[in-house]
Amino acid sequence: MDAEARQGARQGRRAIDLYLNIILLVFVAATGIAAVWLRNLLASAMVLGIYSLLMASLWVVLDAVDVAFTEAAVGAGVTTVLMLLAIALTGRREKRARSRPWAPLAVSLATAGLLVYATLGMPAFGSADAPAQLHVAPYYLRHGEAETGVPNVVTSVLASYRGFDTLGEVTVIFTAGIGVLVLLGSASRRRRNSATPAKGDSA
């Protein structure tokens, strides 16, 4: 009886997870469309922030708590601030395109159709015997804590098993930071050196 009740509760929780997942995905798609649709870029950036926050909740539903943490801090926080700063410098209105967007629409719809056809061969959502679940992940889950003393498998894989990969990622981030510094820093110095503003600076 007790085991039966627990079984029923687990079934119910799984169903709720699935429905939450679908509802969040619908919201995510709606905000994504809105972010592209809006002509006012400031509104577009704010909608993108909401989109990221919804994505963060979706990651929690899909068990990726570390990813949710990062997405909430990066997507909803830092990206929105950077977008707003850049839009303040480049102008907040998007001009209406003269040509009709039928060709791009056809290209993206055709790509989507091909990809949907490709997903028919993918394993079902959440299946425990999909190929991705059978390769190295069981090893990490079984031996990770004994070999590294870290219960959070994501941290142990990130820093230890795939440490070389993460070193590369950190280098990419560092390079991007230096790139932004060089792009925006040296340009302002060049303008200061030339001293006389050649043309009206609308920024």
Partner: peptide, 27 residues
């Protein structure tokens, strides 16, 4: 392994915090 992971994570944290602030202040 545990010690190595701790030190490496501190390095990642310093790099990421520094780079995000560099980007923000440049903008």
């Amino acid at each position: 392994n545990h010690i190595g992971i701790l030190i490496v994570e501190i390095g990642v944290g310093m790099a990421v915090a520094g780079v995000i602030m560099i980007i923000f202040f440049s903008f």
